[in-house]
Design a protein around this nucleic acid. Structure first.
Lengths: 239, 239
DNA sequence: CGGCAGGTTGACTTGCTTCAACGACTGTGG
DNA sequence: CCACAGTCGTTGAAGCAAGTCAACCTGCCG
C-alpha cells in the first residue's frame, strides 16, 4: 500500500543506478506460497468488486498488476478509501472472519489469491513467514496512523502533496520522471477526505506554481520535490 | 483502545446481569506474561510521557489503571491522537524498531511494562499467544480504519456522537448511567480532528436536545442511545 | 480568597464544499 | 476516419460548517 508518511524520494533519485535490494518483506510471503502452489491467479476488470464489506473473509490477495482500492461506504453513500494496493501489496489479511471493507479494481487487475486458512497454517509452520505476516500487520497499522494525521490535521494542499510524494516513493519514481496515477480524481478525493473539485483545484495550483506538470490525467511529473515536501509538512516530531 | 466503529451499547444494556465471558484476547497476553514474571508495574503522573515518537521501542505496555493517549505531533504543533488506551488495552506493540507515536498519561496511570523481545520470544514459543498478538494487530488496524472514515467523512456532530458511543461501549456503560471521560476537551478534539470549541458546542447542543447530560466535565450521561446512534451514522455498508 | 487551568459562549472569518456550467478525452459504431 | 455520446476532469460563483479570535465563566487548589 502507499504510505501517508513521507519518506524522501530524493534518496532514490540520488542513487538511480543502484538496483533495488531483493526485499525479504511482504513480497516473499507470496513468493513462498506460490512455490507451494497455494496461490491462484485471478483477474478483475476495471471497477469490479474483488470482495465486499461484510462478506466472509476466505481469501487474502496480492496485487500482481494494476491497482485496487480498499474502501468503506456509509449508508448515505459517503466513501472513504483506506488504502490503495499497488503491485506487490497484499490486502484482505487485516480483518477477522469478515472483510471490514470493500476491495475494487481501480484498473484492470491481476491478483494472486490465497486461502487464508493456508496462509495461517504456513504461518504456524514457518517462523519467517510468521514474522512477515506480523510485519505486514504492523506496517498496515502504522500507515493507517499516518493517514489519520493527514485526515485529521492537514490542509488540502498538504494532503495532495503528501499523497503524490507517497505514491512517487512507493513506485520509486524520481524527480522529473512521469508518475503514473492509476486512480481517477474521485478516488484520490475519497482517499484524502476531500471533494473532487478541491483535488482538481489543488493540482492546478501546484501546476501553476511550476512544482509539477500534468501531461495527462493519469500522470504527473514532479519538478520540485523539495518544495513539494515542504508543502506536505507531514513530518511529526516527538514532544 | 476505543473503537470508532459503533457496536450497539444497547446489547450490553439488555443483558446487564450476564457476566462478561472470560475473554481470551489481549487481556490474557499479559496475564500469561505476568505469570511468567515478565511484566513490571510502572506508574506515571498525569501528563507524563511514557514514550516519545522516534525513541527505540524496547517495551510494550498494558494499561492497568487510568488512560493513555497515543498521538503524533506535527512540526508546527498540530496534534492528532490516534488512540486512547484504557484499562485492559495494550499499546506500543504496533511499531517496528522505533515508536511511531508518543504515549502520554491522560490521568495518573498504572501500566504493566513488557520487554518486546520477551513478548516476541513467547510468541515464537506458544501458538495461542501468537494468535493473540496477531489478533491485537488486526484489531488495531481495523479500528484505525474506522477512525479514518470518521476523520475523512463525518461531520462534527457525527464524530462526537460516535466517540461517546464507542467509549460507552468499551466501558460497557449503560444508558442513563454516568460515563466517565478521563480525557479533557482538547484531547477529545485532537482525537476527533476538531477544535476544542467545536467539541464544546457540539456537546452543548446534544445536552440541549436532551440526548445527554453533563453532570461535570469528566462525565456524561447518555439518555437516548437510539438517537445518539442515529446521529453517529457511522455505519458502513457493502456496495 | 485569589489565581489559574480548563471549559463555554459569542462574533466573525475562511477553507472547503456545493452547485452549476463547461471542456476534453475515449471508445464505439457507422 | 469521423461523428457522437458518455465519462471524467476543470473552472467559477456562492454557501456553509468548522475554525479563529476573544471574552468570560467555573471549579479547584494553594
Amino acid at each position: 500500500m502507499i504510505n501517508a508518511s513521507n519518506a524522501c524520494i530524493k534518496t532514490a533519485a540520488r542513487a538511480p543506478s543502484v538496483p533495488t535490494t531483493p526485499q525479504l518483506t511482504r513480497q516473499s510471503i507470496s513468493e513462498i506460497t506460490t512455490e507451494r502452489k497455494l496461490g491462484a491467479v485471478v483477474t478483475f476488470a476495471r471497477g469490479k468488486t474483488i470482495f465486499g464489506d461484510g462478506e466472509i473473509a476466505d481469501y487474502s490477495y496480492k496485487v500482481a498488476e494494476g491497482a485496487v482500492r480498499l474502501s468503506k461506504i456509509m449508508l448515505d453513500g459517503r466513501r472513504q478509501i483506506a488504502e490503495f494496493a499497488l503491485p506487490g501489496d497484499m490486502f484482505g489479511f487485516e480483518c477477522g472472519d469478515l472483510y471490514e471493507l470493500s476491495a475494487e479494481a481501480v484498473t484492470p487487475v491481476v491478483v494472486i489469491r490465497y486461502k487464508r486458512t493456508h496462509i495461517e497454517r504456513l504461518g504456524e509452520e514457518f517462523s519467517d513467514i510468521r514474522r512477515e505476516l506480523m510485519a505486514h500487520l504492523r506496517h498496515g497499522w502504522t500507515s493507517a496512523q499516518a493517514h489519520l494525521v493527514m485526515l485529521g490535521r492537514q490542509t488540502a494542499k498538504e494532503r495532495v502533496a503528501a499523497f503524490l510524494l507517497a505514491l512517487a516513493n512507493h513506485r520509486r519514481v524520481e524527480e522529473n520522471r512521469p508518475l503514473e496515477l492509476p486512480m481517477g480524481r474521485q478516488d484520490i478525493a475519497d482517499y484524502l477526505g476531500l471533494t473532487i473539485e478541491t483535488v482538481c483545484r489543488t493540482l492546478t495550483e501546484l501546476k501553476q506554481s511550476k512544482i509539477l506538470s500534468i501531461p495527462d490525467r493519469h500522470a504527473v511529473v514532479i519538478h520540485d520535490v523539495e518544495t513539494l515536501e515542504s508543502l506536505a509538512q507531514g513530518d511529526t516530531i516527538e514532544d
